[in-house]
Design a protein around this nucleic acid. Structure first.
Length: 562
RNA sequence: CGGUCGGUAGCUAAGUCUGGCUUAAAGCAGCGGACUUUUAAUCCGUUAAUCGUGAGUUCAAAUCUCACCCGACCGACCA
């Protein structure tokens, strides 16, 4: 059916009706005659509101989960359809009886002709009505959100019903008008998520990438540094781990000749839950042969721009108090970022003054890291009352302790690198609001990336930060089996010294590299976090349909009481 | 694991600081009734709450104290 002429008629009435006034009766009647000429329509859906009954006629809206259309049931005009025979029951008042049994939330099917009401709303004048399905539970309040976040996340279906049935209050509409930010319904959040994902898939497909599926259950938890979920395979009698990243499998595929591959699927990490961490999360990883880190940044930027525009309709996004602009992606090195966001409170440290060159000095790096780490622990870092004296004193103490520990004489490259990275997290990370590629990562914390030809201590690696959140991580892939083996060995040494995050050695991957892997660049993009940014949601749980929650305790309580 | 805030009918919630004249408001939903163009329909009537759980203080506790449970946010942990 072509809806355009119908919309045209609705618009004509609206255009000729001053706001707040009832439409002209004559015009309405003439338009209604045109509408009736279209013949009958059939619609079905859920009763979006409790029926508004007025004696012998009633209005009610039907919802299909997204939109709603009003139906008008008049006692003398409607006939019910029997669910037993499928036939219309031609009995005076029977449909009205059936209608009287309906509740907010039930599903019905109707047939009738279109018309415009006295207030100008397009409605269906019902001729036949059929009961389809019952809602036994009470519907959520039509004017309020589900206030309890637990209900909206644990019983997502209720949340989705609520968001589809709910009307916005005048205050909310006014607020949206003033701020220009539309508050998304739960439904819209997940529609936007779907659009972003399909936009990304489309972009990659258009650039000749092939989507693949690599193992979710793996004998080794590799490709990233994280605690895995463990399970075991009974028939094989082996331990399996839920994958923490598909990285090494995807790179095996580049060895096998897939020059452009991607996988968009779940990763699992057995770690803490937070507003930006869920045990399972969605990651897009892709690899492109003969590309390097800079090419990858260009490509990723183009892809994110295009899919953001597709999902949101623009490149500017309001997030909390910030407006994030996806128009420009800055590229600065880790050291530059630290220097730029260095807190002026810490410019003078004892008799010394902070300079960017300190960031090239291994001993100073360790010193600064210890200084800040200690302050974070003491919870003084965030205090407004910080006095220069106190800073000087702490600086002195940190220096002394370092001397006592005899560190500084043989600061390892790895230790300095870790200090630099931690310093970056403390000083700069949260300040990176606009899309920013941080480049020049230390090699020792990037065991899968290729080292820079100009500076062997630096990896050809970047991470993308938006609103202080790490959203992507990419690099020129290390494809030398010998060097990769050595890097894994270094990681194992780190592990032995207590760094549990260090990466696990994967011999088969080394073997794959030994067959020859083309030079390639790859990236992993955290989809959930990106969706958070695009939907103005501040918890990852609000962009995952069924997030992980503590198991429900209520039933147990009841058992205990019994 | 630490800090902050919260838990009162099916939903949204007032009351908690300053314990008692509150029979624990009110709106929505529900139930009964009126109404043949309403739209957060309206009008009349009405049901519904061991005030998160347990203990304590008190003549008296939704209100004060302690413990516990549940949740949110912020930290810690976690690329």
């Amino acid at each position: 059916m072509n809806f355009a002429p119908i919309l045209e008629i609705v618009r004509e009435l609206k255009d000729n009706t001053p706001t707040g006034e009832k439409p002209n009766q004559e015009l309405k009647e003439s338009l209604n005659a045109k509408l009736k000429a279209f013949g009958n329509v059939r619609i079905s859906g859920r009763l979006a509101v409790p029926p508004r009954v007025m004696g012998k006629a009633a209005f009610v809206h039907l919802s299909d989960g997204v939109c709603r259309l009003q139906i008008y049931v008049r006692k003398q005009d409607a006939k019910p359809i029997s669910n037993d025979t499928g036939e219309t029951i031609d009995e005076e008042g029977k449909a009205w009886e059936v209608f009287g049994l309906l509740d907010h939330g039930d599903f019905i099917g109707t047939e009738g002709y279109l018309f415009l009401t006295n207030t100008g709303e397009l409605s269906v004048h019902v001729e036949t009505i059929q009961f389809l399905s019952k809602s036994l539970m009470p519907m959520p309040d039509k004017m309020h959100d589900i206030a309890d976040p637990e209900i909206s996340r644990r019983y997502r279906y209720v949340d989705l019903i609520a968001s589809s049935l709910r009307n916005k209050t005048d205050d909310e509409l006014e607020e949206e008008r003033q701020t220009g930010v539309k508050k998304l319904t739960t439904r819209e959040v997940f529609e936007r998520r779907a659009k972003l994902i399909s936009g990304m898939r489309r972009f990659l497909d258009d650039h000749d990438y092939i989507e693949v599926e690599t193992p979710m259950l793996t004998p080794k938890a590799t490709g990233a540094a994280a605690t895995p979920f463990e399970t075991d395979h009974k028939a094989l009698g082996i331990k399996l781990y839920a994958r923490i990243a598909p990285e090494l499998y995807l790179k095996r595929l580049t060895v096998g000749g897939f020059e452009k591959v991607y996988e968009l699927n779940r990763n699992f990490r057995n770690e803490g839950l937070s507003h930006k961490h869920n045990p399972e999360f969605t990651m897009l990883e892709f690899y492109c042969a003969y590309m390097d880190v800079n090419g990858m940044m260009d490509f990723a930027e183009a892809m994110i721009k295009k899919s953001v525009r597709k999902a949101v309709g623009s490149l500017q996004v309001k997030y909390g108090g910030h407006e994030i602009d996806f128009e420009q992606f800055e590229r600065i090195s880790m050291k530059e970022a630290i220097a730029r966001h260095w807190d002026a409170k810490f410019s003078k440290l004892g008799s010394e003054t902070f300079e960017e060159s300190w960031l090239d000095d291994s001993k100073k790096l360790v010193l600064l890291f210890r200084f800040f780490d200690w302050k974070v622990e003491e919870d003084i870092f965030s205090s407004e009352q910080m006095l220069q004296e106190k800073i000087d004193d702490m600086w002195k103490v940190t220096n002394q302790r370092l001397e006592e520990d005899h560190i500084g004489f043989d600061v390892t490259e790895a230790r300095a690198s870790i200090s630099l990275a931690r310093l970056f997290e403390i000083v700069a990370e949260s300040k990176l609001i606009q899309p920013t590629f941080i480049i020049d990562y230390p090699k020792s914390i990037s065991p899968l990336s290729k080292a820079s030809p100009e500076n062997p201590q630096i990896a050809e690696r970047f991470e993308l930060f938006i609103n202080g959140m790490e959203c992507a991580n990419g690099f020129s892939e290390l494809n030398d089996p010998q060097e990769q083996y050595e890097r894994f060995v270094d990681q194992m040494k780190e592990r032995e010294t207590g760094d549990e995050e260090a990466m696990v050695l994967d011999e088969d991957y080394i073997r794959a590299l030994a067959y020859g892997m083309p030079p390639a660049a790859g990236i992993g993009i955290g989809i959930d976090r990106l969706v958070m940014l695009l939907t103005n949601k501040h918890s990852i749980r609000d962009v995952i349909l069924f997030p992980h929650l503590r198991p429900e305790k209520r039933d147990e309580d009841r058992k205990d009481e019994a």
